[in-house]
C-alpha cells in the first residue's frame, strides 16, 4: 500500500462536503445581498442610512469572505484530485477516521418525520413514533427495553410540558 506523502485537510468525501457547504454559504450571501438591494432603501428621504444600509455592509462582507473560502476549498479539492490521479490510488490519504454519515442522516430523517407528524398526530403519538423508530434502528434486538423506554420517555416529556409547564402541545387528530 502506497503511503500518503501529501497532507490534505480531509479525505475526498470530506473535501467535497466542505466545498458544498462553502458554496451554499456563498449562494446564501449572494441571495441575501441582492434581495436586500432590490427590496430595501439604502438611504432615507433626508439622506441618512436607511433600512438597507447595514444589510448591504453585512451582505458584501459575507460575499467577500465566503467567496475566499470557496476558492480555498476548491483549490484544496483540486489539489487532492490531482494527487489521487497522479498516485492512481483512492484510499490511504487523510480522513482515515471512521465516520457515520448514514447515522446522522437517519437521525435527521427521523427528526423530520417527528416534526411532520407533530401537528397531525399530536405530541404523544409523534413522540412515540419517533422514539420507536429511533430505538428500532439504533438499539436493535433489545425489544423489551425498547418498548419500556419508548413508552416512558414520551409520557415523561408529555407530563413535564403539558401537565407541569402547561405548554399547550398539539393534540392532533385523536384530540389528546
Amino acid at each position: 500500500m502506497q503511503s500518503c506523502t501529501f497532507s490534505f485537510s480531509g479525505s475526498g468525501d470530506v473535501l467535497v462536503m466542505q466545498l458544498i457547504f462553502s458554496a451554499a454559504l456563498l449562494v446564501f450571501s449572494l441571495l441575501f445581498t441582492f434581495y436586500g438591494l432590490s427590496t430595501l432603501e439604502l438611504y432615507d428621504p433626508i439622506g441618512r442610512p436607511g433600512p438597507g444600509y447595514f444589510p448591504l455592509i453585512i451582505g458584501v462582507l459575507l460575499i467577500i469572505f465566503t467567496a475566499v473560502n470557496c476558492i480555498k476549498d476548491f483549490k484544496n479539492f483540486k489539489d487532492f484530485k490531482g494527487y489521487i490521479a497522479d498516485a492512481g490510488k483512492l484510499s490511504g490519504c487523510g480522513g482515515s477516521d471512521q465516520t457515520y454519515f448514514k447515522d446522522s442522516a437517519v437521525t435527521l430523517g427521523l427528526i423530520t418525520i417527528f416534526i411532520l407528524t407533530l401537528e397531525p398526530l399530536g405530541s404523544i403519538l409523534s413522540m412515540l413514533v419517533f422514539t420507536g423508530l429511533f430505538l428500532l434502528y439504533f438499539n436493535k434486538g433489545k425489544h423489551l427495553f425498547n418498548v419500556v423506554y419508548g413508552l416512558m420517555l414520551p409520557i415523561g416529556v408529555y407530563l413535564l410540558f403539558e401537565v407541569l409547564l402547561r405548554a399547550g402541545l398539539p393534540k392532533g387528530i385523536f384530540d389528546y
Binding site: T107, L110, I111, F114, I115, L118, S123, M127, F130, T131, F134, L135, F138, L153, P154, V157, F161, L165, A167, G168, L169, P170
Partner: peptide
C-alpha cells in the same frame, strides 16, 4: 441519550 435530547429540543422549541 440521543432521543431524550431530540425530543426536548423539538418539543421545547414548539412550546
Amino acid at each position: 441519550v440521543v432521543p431524550v435530547i431530540i425530543i426536548l429540543c423539538v418539543i421545547g422549541t414548539f412550546a
